[in-house]
Design a binder for these strands. Structure first.
Lengths: 198, 198
DNA sequence: CAGTTTTCTAGAAAATTATTCTATTTCTTG
DNA sequence: CAAGAAATAGAATAATTTTCTAGAAAACTG
C-alpha cells in the first residue's frame, strides 16, 4: 500500500495508539492533551497539525475503533449463508471484539456521542453509515426473500445492535454482573427471534 | 413533604433546570460552568457548595433525568397485568418519554457514560440499579410462571432496553432517518418476541 | 431572644487544560 | 539545488475549572 510511508502517517498512528492507551489507563478524566503528548512523545504542534483540535484526535480514534469493530462484524457476516447464521454471526462478532479488544470497545462506548461528537458528528455519522450500509446490503435480499421479517432497515439494525451494545456497555462498566460468555450463548438466538418472520 | 423548603433546594433546582436548558440550547460544547451560571443567575460559590464540581452538577442532572424516565416506565408497567402487556408498556413509555421530553432524553443519551461518569459512576449506578430492581421485581414472578423465557435478569433487561435506547439515540441524533411513531408501532411486538418462551 | 454555629452565597485568585502562533526543520518537486 | 509544502517544536495565549477567603442568611441553643 505505502512503500514510502509519510513521516506524518507514523505520527498520526503514534498519537492514536497513545491516546487509546491513555484512555484505557486513566479513563476520561486523565484523557488530556498533555497526557497524550507525553505518552506518544509527539509535540503539541504535530498534534494540532494533524488533527486540528484535541476533539479531532478523539473523533479520529473513535472512527478507527468503530471501523475495526464493524470490519470484524462484516467479516463474520460474509462467512454466513442463511439469514439466521448471519444475524447470529453479527452478535457473536461484536461480543468477541468487546472481549478481545476491551480498550477499543471501552473507547467506543465511553466516548461515543460524548462531546467529541459535537464538531465531528457529521464525519463520524458518515463513516458509520458506510459500514452499516454493507450490513444492510447483506440483509436486504434475505428480507425480500422472506427469511427475515419485513421491517424497515433502521429497526432491524436497532434490534440487532441495541442489545449487543447494551451488553458490551454493561460488561465494560464491570459493575453490573454481566457474563459475556453467557450472553454470547443466549443472545444470538434471542435476537434472531425478534427478526424472524411469522 | 417540605412545608418550608430550604433556600438551597431552590438554588439546586435553578441550577439543574438551567443546566438542562443550556445543554439543549448549546450542546455539549456550550455546556460550561459560566454558561450555567449566567443562565441560572446563581453564583459560582453556590454551584460548588451544592455540587462540589461541575461534573457533580452534571451527574446530578443525569440522575434526575434518568429517574424521571424510569419512573414513567415503572408507572406504565404497574398498569399492566400480563407479561406481554408489561413489556410492551415499558417500550412504549420509553419512546413516549423521548418524544415528550427530548431535552431530558438528549442529556441522558448525550452525557451518559461520558466523562461525568468517572467520579460519580458509583452513585449513578446505584440509582439506576434501584430503578431497574423495581422492574426486575415485576418481571420475576412472570418469568417463574413461564410467561417469559427463563433468562438471566440482566439479559432480559438488555433485550428490552437495548433496542429502545438505540432507537431513542438515533432519533435524537436526527440524522438517521428514524421514525419514532413507526418504532412505537413495531418494536413492542418485536421485543416481546425475543422474550417469549418457546 | 442574644449568642453561636452551620449553611449558603459571592466572586477574586489560582490552577489546569486547550488552542493559537511563530519559528525551525524535513521532505518533495521542478 | 532552490523554492515551496508539510511536519515538528514549544512558548505564549486563551478558555475553563477549581480553590479559597470572606461575609450574609438561616438554624440552633441555652
Amino acid at each position: 500500500m505505502s512503500p514510502k510511508q509519510q513521516r506524518g502517517e507514523a505520527t498520526v498512528d503514534r498519537l492514536l495508539t497513545a491516546a487509546l492507551d491513555v484512555y484505557a489507563a486513566s479513563g476520561q478524566s486523565g484523557f488530556t492533551v498533555n497526557a497524550v503528548l507525553k505518552a506518544s512523545g509527539v509535540s503539541l504542534g504535530s498534534l494540532y497539525h494533524h488533527f486540528g483540535s484535541f476533539d479531532g484526535l478523539a473523533a479520529a480514534l473513535y472512527t478507527r475503533c468503530m471501523e475495526q469493530l464493524f470490519d470484524e462484524m462484516i467479516a463474520a457476516l460474509s462467512r454466513a449463508r442463511t439469514a439466521r447464521t448471519g444475524v447470529r454471526a453479527l452478535v457473536t462478532a461484536y461480543l468477541r471484539f468487546t472481549e478481545e479488544r476491551p480498550d477499543a470497545a471501552l473507547f467506543i462506548h465511553g466516548s461515543a456521542y460524548s462531546g467529541y461528537l459535537s464538531a465531528h458528528s457529521e464525519h463520524i455519522r458518515t463513516a458509520k453509515a458506510a459500514k452499516l450500509a454493507v450490513i444492510a446490503d447483506w440483509l436486504r435480499p434475505r428480507v425480500e426473500a422472506g427469511e427475515i421479517a419485513p421491517l424497515p432497515a433502521p429497526l432491524i439494525e436497532v434490534l440487532v445492535m441495541g442489545p449487543v451494545a447494551e451488553t458490551a456497555h454493561r460488561w465494560l462498566s464491570s459493575t453490573y454482573d454481566m457474563d459475556l460468555t453467557q450472553a454470547a450463548r443466549i443472545l444470538p438466538d434471542r435476537i434472531w427471534r425478534s427478526l424472524q418472520p411469522d
